[in-house]
């Protein structure tokens, strides 16, 4: 499969065949190769080791490598599929695939559930949602009284936590998202539809026949 693979495999640990990645995701082979151009740029921004560490991820998101952000951290943790503290190219493509406009709706619901289930217990607990609300208030510089935060939590859990056990399970989340489809807006990136035109240079590095 040409020099794309042999070169990429040496320079990018965990690099996976773009043809296989395309077959496992919502992307075409060309789109996987275009994503590789983006991946190369992010993974070499701080340490040129062919992997994306948290600092590089934050730098790409915020243009600031020192900015700590609970939500960006959570996204990083979920993209770090192999739990090695870094994102390799396979992780990157498979995780971004969920954000493709054509990705299955159920995959988007599952991923969004994991985003909010901060400690990975299989439930979104009230304390986790409160932690996220407080982090968001800090991030945005907004001030809300604790009792206002509690009112927001009461109202949210009254609606989402159907069995009223103080936590939201996957089935409750699925129903809640169906009633509030705007919650999945963050799970779709229209940019991914145009990835080959955003990174046209991928054609110079490809030897895959499809292109």
């Amino acid at each position: 499969m040409g020099c794309f693979h042999s070169t990429a495999s040496k320079q990018f640990p965990g690099h996976e065949d773009p043809v296989i990645l395309a077959s496992q995701t919502a992307f075409s082979v060309s789109e996987v190769e275009a994503l590789f151009e983006l991946y190369k740029s992010i993974s070499s921004s701080v340490i040129d080791d062919g992997l994306i560490n948290k600092e590089e991820f934050q730098l790409a998101l915020f243009k600031n490598r020192k900015k700590e952000n609970l939500f960006a951290n959570r996204i990083f943790e979920l993209f770090d599929v192999k739990k090695k503290g870094v994102i390799d190219f396979g992780d990157f493509v498979k995780s971004l695939s969920v954000f493709h406009p054509n990705a299955p709706h159920e995959d988007k619901i599952d991923f969004s559930f994991k985003l909010y289930d901060l400690d990975g217990t299989g439930f979104i607990e009230r304390q986790e949602v409160k932690q996220m609300l407080i982090a968001l208030l800090c991030e945005s510089g907004m001030k809300l009284a604790d009792e206002t935060v509690e009112i927001i939590l009461d109202k949210t859990f009254l609606e989402a936590d159907v069995n009223q056990d103080g936590k939201i399970d996957k089935s409750e989340w699925q129903n809640f998202v169906r009633q509030n489809p705007s919650l999945l807006k963050i799970m779709t990136l229209p940019y991914l539809r145009d990835i080959t035109t955003t990174f046209p240079s991928f054609v110079f590095h490809s030897e895959v026949d499809e292109i």
Binding site: L38, S41, F62
Partner: peptide
């Protein structure tokens, strides 16, 4: 105006907005 905590979080948090990854090229 936000009585739905998740709507508040998803619409306000910059950390959940991955579009900036593509603007950084």
């Amino acid at each position: 105006p936000f009585y739905n905590a998740f709507e508040f979080i998803s619409s306000m948090s910059s950390g959940f907005d991955l579009s900036s990854l593509f603007e950084s090229k």
